[in-house]
């Protein structure tokens, strides 16, 4: 028995070796390199030895860096909030009000837009929201307004619309999955015991679907914090975020140490926010039981 177990482990390792090797060489090693670079001195596209924490001091105290990081966090949190709030009712609708055999079709409909070119979707929002673009020309044509609104010029608003659209399915799916797991008998019990439909939702369905909401928050928050395309195309470079800042340091200023320090900072922010949310989730579940 022990022997068959060890031979099973051996087969398992042999099978997983190629993908593992790939991930170690092309993911773990580069991330470790960035970690090391972040405490070195960078100049002219190279790094040299005196180890220093100066990069981090600059990133954490420099006014420009602070402003850009605060904005990245602010924008991606707003995006996350908007996306999840918009997604919850649709996930609820599909889970509770769509016949079981049609659920797959609804989910397919919701996911299709996500699989069409990201660049094209972002660029489309630019032509939709832009000066004299589709929204402006429609509103003027309908006589609602005489001046172009030029929503695009309000950088943050247009970034939020674009990203809330881009990440919609990411928010709908996890919430839907957690709603599907809600035991329908509990809802009937709640209503039998005299709760209204709304209080049953607040006291039973919503808490039980929290894991899905937390998953949705993380799935939307992580990529939006590091988004590069939208600030570039929609914000017109006027609302740079962390990813754009990494590009400037790494490639334009050719300071790989500073770029690495920003990347490490960004990863830490993502990690801290994720851990906070996971803890929140545990506490939430613990509190309701």
């Amino acid at each position: 028995m022990a022997q068959s177990q060890s031979s099973e482990a051996k087969t398992g390792y042999m099978l997983v070796a190629p993908p593992l090797l790939y991930a170690v060489l092309l993911l773990a090693a580069p991330l470790a390199t960035v970690l090391i670079y972040s405490v070195l001195t960078g100049e002219n596209g190279a790094v040299s030895l005196p180890m220093t924490t100066e990069n981090f001091t600059t990133v954490w105290t420099g006014r420009v860096y602070q402003a850009i990081m605060a904005r990245s966090l602010y924008v991606s949190m707003l995006v996350t909030l908007t996306t999840v709030l918009l997604a919850y009712p649709i996930a609820y609708f599909v889970s509770f009000h769509v016949r079981p055999e049609r659920k797959a079709l609804w989910l397919f409909l919701i996911t299709i837009p996500f699989w069409t070119s990201y660049i094209i979707r972002v660029a489309l929002w630019r032509t939709i929201l832009g000066y004299n673009g589709i929204i402006d020309s429609t509103l003027i044509g309908l006589g609602v307004t005489s001046e172009p609104l030029n929503i695009l010029s309000y950088g943050v608003v247009s970034i939020i619309i674009t990203l809330a659209h881009a990440y919609a399915p990411f928010a709908v799916l996890p919430i839907f999955v957690s709603l599907e797991k809600v035991d329908r008998a509990l809802l009937e019990a709640g209503q039998d015991l005299g709760e209204s439909r709304w209080t049953t939702f607040l006291r039973v369905t919503l808490p039980l679907s929290m894991p899905g909401v937390i998953a949705a928050v993380l799935i939307v928050f992580i990529p939006t914090v590091g988004d590069y395309v939208t600030p570039e195309l929609i914000g017109g470079g006027k609302v740079p975020m962390i990813a754009n800042m990494i590009e400037i340091e790494m490639l334009k200023k050719r300071d790989q140490a500073m770029g690495s320090a920003i990347a490490v900072t960004a990863m830490s922010i993502v990690a801290i926010v994720s851990i906070l949310f996971v803890l929140l989730n545990k506490r939430f579940i613990g509190g309701t039981k």
Binding site: Q5, E8, A9, G12, Y13, V16, P19, L20, A23, V24, L26, L27, A28, P30, L31, T33, V34, Y37, L218, I222, P223, V225, G226, D227, Y228, I242, A243, I246, E247, M250, Q256, G259, S260, A263, A266, M267, V270, S274
Partner: peptide
């Protein structure tokens, strides 16, 4: 069944939870 499965699969799945820009820059460096 083999020991360390969670960690190994976790490492392979990491790009899902890492902003793409960081993956790109780390590889570039």
């Amino acid at each position: 069944k083999w020991p360390g499965k969670t960690a190994v699969v976790g490492l392979i799945m990491v790009p899902l939870v890492l902003p793409e820009m960081i993956v790109a820059m780390a590889l570039l460096v």
